[in-house]
Computed example of a mutant assay.
Amino acid sequence: MTRISDAIKTDHRQIEACYDKIINSNDPDEQTRWQNQFTWELARHSIGEELVVYPAFETHLPEGKDMANKDRQEHQVVKELLKQFQEMKSSDPKFMSTIRTLMDNLSPHIKEEEEQDLVRLEGALDQAESERMATSFGRTKMFVPSRSHPSAPNKPPFETAVGLLTAPIDHIADIFRKFPDHSISPNPSTK
Results as ranks from 00 to 15, higher is better:
69 N>M: 08
38 F>P: 09
41 E>T: 07
58 E>Y: 09
42 L>I: 03
93 P>A: 14
50 E>Q: 10
71 D>K: 07
56 A>G: 08
81 L>N: 08
40 W>S: 03
39 T>H: 11
96 M>R: 12
61 L>S: 02
69 N>Q: 13
46 S>F: 00
50 E>S: 03
40 W>K: 02
33 R>D: 13
39 T>A: 13
62 P>A: 15
81 L>A: 10
68 A>S: 10
70 K>F: 09
86 Q>D: 11
62 P>M: 13
57 F>L: 08
81 L>Y: 10
71 D>W: 02
53 V>C: 09
63 E>T: 11
67 M>T: 03
54 Y>E: 01
77 V>M: 11
43 A>Y: 03
66 D>F: 03
60 H>K: 15
53 V>W: 05
55 P>K: 00
82 L>E: 09
70 K>R: 12
46 S>R: 00
72 R>C: 00
76 Q>H: 15
37 Q>Y: 06
67 M>D: 04
48 G>Q: 02
32 T>L: 15
88 M>T: 01
42 L>F: 06
83 K>E: 15
96 M>A: 12
42 L>K: 02
71 D>F: 05
33 R>Y: 11
52 V>M: 05
73 Q>G: 14
85 F>D: 06
48 G>T: 03
69 N>P: 04
36 N>A: 10
63 E>S: 13
58 E>Q: 15
68 A>Q: 04
51 L>Y: 04
57 F>V: 06
56 A>H: 06
56 A>C: 08
42 L>T: 04
79 K>Y: 08
47 I>V: 13
92 D>W: 09
55 P>F: 00
89 K>M: 11
33 R>H: 12
33 R>C: 13
36 N>S: 14
72 R>T: 00
68 A>Y: 01
38 F>M: 10
34 W>G: 12
78 V>M: 07
60 H>G: 10
85 F>G: 04
34 W>I: 11
49 E>D: 02
94 K>D: 15
48 G>M: 03
87 E>Y: 10
38 F>D: 11
39 T>R: 09
35 Q>D: 12
84 Q>W: 06
63 E>P: 05
78 V>I: 15
54 Y>P: 01
55 P>L: 01
48 G>F: 02
85 F>E: 05
97 S>T: 15
70 K>C: 04
53 V>H: 06
31 Q>E: 12
69 N>D: 14
57 F>S: 07
93 P>G: 12
63 E>Y: 07
29 D>K: 14
